[in-house]
Design a protein around this nucleic acid. Structure first.
Length: 423
RNA sequence: GGAGAAAUGGCAGAGUGGUCGAUUGCGGCAGUCUUGAAAACUGUUGUACCGCGAGGUACCGGGGGUUCGAAUCCCUCUUUCUCCGCCA
């Protein structure tokens, strides 16, 4: 959520930057300013009424004490008047606040200056590409066939137990999955991240804190009996650790890593994009989160991209890095890099990580602040990224490393799997 | 799930209708003393909003109510603790 004060002071910048998202925010921004003016005016009136009422209450108290009940009762008349007036103003103030809040919720984050203009994924900027695309043998199979052939993943069994999008990992498939999780966690810990195992269900306040609510309400599984949401990513519970927290400057950078299953309804998805492991309702992900000083957050973003590059390099997967264009960026992000691996049998790029700087957008909702060197309280910057999302990594490992005789396990995983090939 | 107790500032812990944004202790910060440090002493130390400022308003777990006036009384929700029951 953008700050009202920021919108007031940078009106034209806000409108200009949101054009990168192909949004004309002029009307909304103007309404926000008008409403904010109204809010200020109402508060001034209300405050002075309450000030008078506080004064009177003191006087009445004194009068009662000195036995001057007649005079006290006279003043009471005035206070009842004030009460009525202030009740009206208070309601008005509440209404304004709600309306203002709703408008603010509709505005996405401002894209950073370097975010390319564009409407869709086709306009994303390719900023890095690595590792040659492997040449597969003539009978190469897509990962869902390989998973079946080597008894690694049972999709039909998942349908029986839960439904489509809930695969069952078996045998070496399950072990490979577990190896990847541990590998990713170990690498993050080595890079200075603290491991967190958070709850997998969160309350409404947490959903609002990181911006899943109200924007992506339908994407999360919701349990009405207990008013809880299944997490769509570890970002939600981990970042919400810092909700309503005032940090010290010396706390920076806060680096957390967490492995969690992630749950997504993926309403509206269908077709061949959902084949196999490409798009699931439940999947595993290791997420890195950082809370950083505003001056250093972009440096941190680069550092996080480097970290993920390191993982992909070790896994020896062909990948590319995209700088997302305004039209393809998430609601809460100021700058996002997507990492995609090439899935050789499907012959397409699969997104395996999305690394974003949210600047103060989440922090404003979370009320996560710090005291700067002058003792002033200001909002922190939050960042996060997948490091990494498992299913598509697994898919590309299976596809890219297949030979006529089986599948080779990447060297960096062998210490974890204790086997170096699947056949 | 049943019964009872509780929730106050970074922490501990007073406060049961007005003089309370809140005694005190610890911690934090600044200073005095010291070659330096410790100790001691002095001062300072919550958040948000409004206001150029003086200053004002709100907040004692959340929401509502009683009252001229609520941290304090009432209702409700949440959470924590103790006991009982059940259970991985």
């Amino acid at each position: 959520m953008l700050q009202t004060s920021f919108i007031r002071e940078n009106t034209s910048l806000v409108i200009e930057r949101l054009k990168k998202r192909n949004i004309d925010a002029t009307t909304t921004v103007n309404s926000i300013i008008v409403l904010d003016d109204k809010r200020k005016k109402t508060q001034q009136e209300l405050d002075s009424l309450l000030a008078e009422s506080n004064q009177l209450a003191k006087q009445i108290g004194d009068l009662f004490k000195s036995g001057n009940t007649d005079e006290a009762n006279k003043l009471k008349n005035r206070t009842t008047q004030i009460k009525e007036q202030s009740a009206i103003l208070k309601e008005e103030q509440n209404n304004i606040a709600v309306e203002l809040q709703q408008l603010l919720y509709t505005l996405p984050n401002l894209p950073n200056e370097i975010v390319p203009n564009g409407k869709s994924a086709e306009d994303n900027q390719n900023v890095y590409e690595n590792n040659p695309i492997p040449k597969l043998h003539a009978n190469a199979l897509p990962h869902w066939e390989l998973a079946k052939k080597y008894n690694l993943i049972d999709f039909e069994l998942g349908v029986k137990i839960s439904g489509a999008g809930f695969p069952v990992y078996k045998g070496k498939g399950a072990q490979l999955q577990r190896a990847l999780i541990t590998f990713f966690l170990d690498r993050a810990i080595a890079a200075g991240y603290d491991e967190i195992m958070p709850p997998l269900m969160v309350n409404e306040a947490s959903g609002y804190g990181t911006g899943q609510l109200p924007d992506k309400e339908g994407q999360m599984y919701y349990m009405p009996a207990d008013d809880l949401y299944m997490i769509p990513t570890a970002e939600v519970p981990i970042t919400n650790i810092y909700r309503d927290v005032i940090l010290k400057e010396s706390d920076f950078p806060i680096k957390n890593v967490g492995y969690t299953p992630c749950f997504r309804r993926e309403a509206g998805s269908y077709g061949k994009d959902v084949r196999g492991l490409n798009r699931l309702h439940q999947f595993d992900k290791v997420e890195i989160v950082q809370i950083q000083h505003p001056d250093k957050s972009y440096q941190t973003l680069d550092e996080m991209v480097e970290h993920v590059k390191g993982l992909l390099n070790q896994l020896e997967l062909p990948y590319r890095i995209l700088r997302l264009c305004g039209g393809d960026m998430g609601f809460t992000s100021a700058l996002t890099y997507d990492m995609e691996v090439f899935s050789a049998a499907q012959e397409k790029w699969l997104e395996v990580s999305s690394i974003s700087n949210f600047e103060t957008f989440q922090a404003n909702r979370l009320k996560c602040r710090f005291k700067d060197s002058e003792g002033k309280t200001q909002l922190v910057h939050t960042l996060n990224g997948s490091a990494l999302a498992l299913p598509r990594i697994l898919a590309s490992i299976l596809e890219n490393n297949q030979t006529e005789n089986g599948i080779n396990v990447p060297k960096c995983l062998v210490p974890y799997t204790k086997f170096d090939s699947i056949n």
